[in-house]
Design a protein around this nucleic acid. Structure first.
Length: 510
RNA sequence: GAGCCGUUAGCUCAGUUGGCAGAGCACCGGACUUUUAAUCCGGGUGUCCUGGGUUCGAAUCCCAGACGGCUCACCA
């Protein structure tokens, strides 16, 4: 980006910013514009200096990072420098830098990006330190950092200005490191099992593969509306038809639904498909993958989530959906199959019991209220009703039940998996059934997808498929109560300039 | 979408019954060559979220709005 040297100061200028801009102006007058510097060759990271003190003592190193604190003592000044690896202390002494360059420290502020060159030493107090003989200001921070002791607590600021959250809060840095390492671990696991990572379209004419409302956008040149994907499922299964027998994608999907501590409109979904496998094989894959990821990222398969222990060590508990509900309520399996009985049950249990509600919605509410919160230890809930599983193969002997499971842990739903329905005619019937729900007003019913049906007609091998919400898994591994704490830039309303509403519109009707 | 709660200095937070706007850190000035939440002396830097209203007087009470958090509803 271009831009001259006459940038306008922001409107929210205050004394602190004026001071820093004044220092920048002085530096420029001396011909030391920090923003003209294009690089700084480091020899060591902060952590390397500290870890290798034994061999580095007395050696000259070059380090660079953000100035986090300064402690001035007249003719000596200590500073904490933080880079991506950690923190290292710098020592500036007037007898080492000379009067003039020592005075130059006056133009430094906490938050500035600096490079320092000097000998590695240890102070009287035992702190490993770089005694700086050279100092370069590499970028000037024009705004003060959040307070160093309490960090940045304001959640709105933490989300809107995540960079400040990352600078100020160690636990935030850690959470996103865990997130990155978790995804890397999952990739390694799947790669080792022979899966290919692929990328499928985010913009789709038909947004299928899940039951959710899509975002709509428009392609100008083609003059067509497109939907942002709500899942990767149907494209990945096309690839299985094409002979890619083990494929996965880790990518963002977009669902036009509300936000909550467990929902962000865009979130990261892992989907994996394995030919010649069924949902039982996928259970094994799921528990092995998650347990190993926890082990690799945290060093243990056991985590504490919101005060409760969650142990990912396989095998996870398995319980059929109907049994899970009947065990936690006084309902019978029959009451879960008749709309009127379920409605009366909901009424009795204090759940929404509107006659308009679908059977599937009501029984789902019952499950969510009475079963899901109890699923703290990792568990697979299996054999969901077929009508709410339009893409899953049914049991041969129990056509009303799908070969499907959902993994739960910490009281959260982590994903969805099944033996993929590969009978094109049956899939068409399921889509038609969904189309009827849609016509009846269910905006989340699965849309008809003729192109996908065409692919199935060329034969897809029996296949097991899995979807895992990566964000929720990260929540578990980082003990985060809100999904926003594991998404770098969670969805927020734009900050409005608050266009003052025309107050007291005398003489004007709204 | 509904209910409850919150918004005060750059940051973290106090603010009593409606009566001059407060503290710590940061910052500014001064002292200090081994500190590490450095210390010591001096200095308060503000659209009390916004707009109305009540009142002699509003950060405080009332109304409306903005943004956020939590809970519920819908979803993963």
């Amino acid at each position: 980006m271009g831009g001259g040297s006459t940038g306008r100061p922001p409107a929210d200028e205050n004394e602190l910013i004026r001071n820093r801009r004044g220092k920048l102006a002085r530096l420029r007058e001396r011909g030391e514009d920090p923003f003209s510097i294009t690089g700084y060759s480091r020899t060591h990271l902060a952590a390397e200096v500290r870890d290798s003190f034994g061999t580095l003592e007395g050696a000259t190193v070059r380090v660079a990072g953000r100035l986090m604190a300064r402690r001035r003592h007249g003719k000596a000044t200590f500073a904490d420098l933080r880079d991506g690896s950690g923190t290292i202390q710098l020592l500036f002494r007037v007898d080492q830098l000379g009067e003039e360059r020592y005075r130059g420290l006056d133009d430094l502020d906490d938050g500035d990006i600096v490079g320092a060159e000097g000998e590695v030493m240890k102070t009287r107090a035992g702190e490993i330190t770089v005694a700086a003989a050279g100092l370069s200001l590499l970028a000037k921070a024009l705004r003060p950092l959040p307070e160093k002791w309490h960090g940045l607590r304001d959640v709105e600021l933490r989300y809107r200005r995540r960079y400040l959250d990352l600078i100020a809060n160690e636990e935030t840095r850690r959470a996103f490191e865990v997130r990155s390492r978790l995804i890397a671990s999952i990739r390694r696991f799947l790669d080792e099992r022979g899966f290919l990572e692929v990328e499928t379209p985010m913009m789709q004419s038909v947004a299928g593969g899940a039951l959710a409302r899509p975002f709509v956008t428009h392609h100008n040149a083609l003059d067509i509306d497109l939907h942002l994907r709500i899942a990767t499922e149907l494209h990945l299964k096309r690839l299985v038809v094409g002979g890619m027998e083990r494929v996965y994608e880790i990518g963002r999907v977009f669902r036009n639904e509300g936000v909550s501590t467990q929902h962000n409109p865009e979130y990261t979904l892992l989907e994996a498909y394995q030919a010649y496998a069924d949902y039982r094989d996928i259970m094994e894959l799921t528990e092995s993958m998650v347990a190993r990821a926890a082990e690799e990222v945290l060093g243990t398969p056991k985590v504490t989530y919101q005060g409760q222990e969650v142990d990912f060590t396989p095998p996870w508990h398995r319980v059929a959906w109907t049994e899970a509900v009947t065990a936690r309520t006084d309902l019978t399996p029959e009451e879960l199959q008749s709309k009127e009985a379920a409605r009366q049950a909901c009424e009795r249990l204090g759940l929404p019991a509107d006659p308009e509600l679908h059977l599937s919605t009501m029984v789902d509410n019952i499950f969510e209220r009475f079963v899901q919160p109890t699923l703290i230890a990792p568990a697979f809930v299996t054999d969901y009703p077929t009508p709410v599983s339009p893409l899953a193969k049914a049991h041969g002997d129990r056509p009303e039940l799908a070969q499907r499971f959902e993994p739960f842990a910490g009281g959260m739903e982590l994903g969805n998996a099944f033996s993929e329905l590969n009978d094109p005619d049956e899939q068409r019937r399921r889509f038609e059934e969904q189309a009827r729900s849609r016509a009846a007003g269910d905006e989340e019913a699965h849309p008809m997808d003729d192109d996908f049906l065409l692919a199935l007609e060329y034969a897809m091998p029996p296949t097991g498929g899995l979807g895992i919400g990566i964000d929720r898994l990260v929540m578990l591994l980082t003990d985060s109560a809100s999904i926003r704490d594991v998404i770098l830039f969670p969805q927020m309303r734009p900050e409005s300039k608050q266009p003052t509403p025309p107050a007291d519109q005398t003489g004007s009707e709204a």
